[in-house]
């Protein structure tokens, strides 16, 4: 993990691979990316993606959740296929899907973040930098999913992985409200670095929590 989370220019470019089955979207995305990001390659299917990532060893993989090929597992399968590289290569999930199952399954497979495809060029560049720096990237919607899954109130659960701390709850809530990390830091009077720590902790919980039914709440969201 580098010390500067949002550096500009001076550092070596971040090497990425773009995985998406729509060529138009790939080229549009490449055009949108800011300076300091070097696109090493592209892939359109699960097999191509695994091959490209293994060969090119990028810093970050921009990964569509829904991909043809493989055994139908999409982005999840790509991450599973590159499991050995997870220490050096980070995955940022990119999707048009709003379905909680899609998002959470790819996060649980090992993705470091999730953004929707409607994100701005500036937003995606920032997200890539963040993920490359070892941090997690949460869109408002993902934060909403997390809050929905873990509950918005502090409840007594034996396993520490199964609940969010008060601070993490606050951070998630602000992200769900559309705050940037910087704004969250300002609002809570903490440093951006601390916000990143909290978000990474939440990501870890989302990935490791024994709440295997994490995706189920979408179906039976309780009414108050």
């Amino acid at each position: 993990m580098t010390e500067q989370p949002t550096p500009a220019g001076a550092t070596p470019p971040i090497r990425i691979v773009v995985v998406d089955d729509h060529a138009i979207f790939r080229s549009g995305l490449k055009a949108d990316l800011g300076a300091g990001i070097d696109v090493l390659g592209e892939a359109g299917t699960v097999e191509e993606a695994i091959a490209a990532v293994t060969a090119l060893r990028p810093d970050v993989v921009l990964l569509d959740v829904h991909l043809p090929g493989g055994r139908g597992g999409g982005g999840r399968e790509v991450i599973a296929g590159c499991a050995a590289l997870l220490a050096s290569t980070r995955f940022l999930a990119l999707s048009v899907s709003d379905a909680a199952e899609d998002v959470v399954s790819v996060i649980r497979a090992g993705a470091r973040g999730y953004v929707t495809k409607s994100i701005s060029g500036e937003g995606i560049t920032d997200a890539i930098r963040r993920v490359a720096g070892g941090d997690a990237v949460f869109s408002p919607r993902l934060a909403g999913f997390v809050l929905d899954a873990f509950g918005t109130a502090e409840v007594a659960v034996e396993d520490e992985l199964d609940r969010l701390s008060a601070r993490e709850l606050e951070v998630m809530r602000l992200i769900a409200r559309g705050y940037s990390y910087k704004e969250v830091a300002k609002e809570l009077f903490i440093s951006v670095k601390t916000v990143e720590t909290h978000v990474s902790a939440v990501l870890r919980k989302l990935q490791l929590s024994s709440r295997h039914e994490l995706t189920r709440w979408a179906a039976d969201r309780r009414l108050l």
Binding site: P140, R141, A143, L147, A176, L223
Partner: peptide, 12 residues
């Protein structure tokens, strides 16, 4: 103008 809604929990 895009209006993004995120809802957590629900109520009648």
């Amino acid at each position: 103008t895009a209006v993004e809604v995120v809802a957590v929990g629900d109520a009648v």
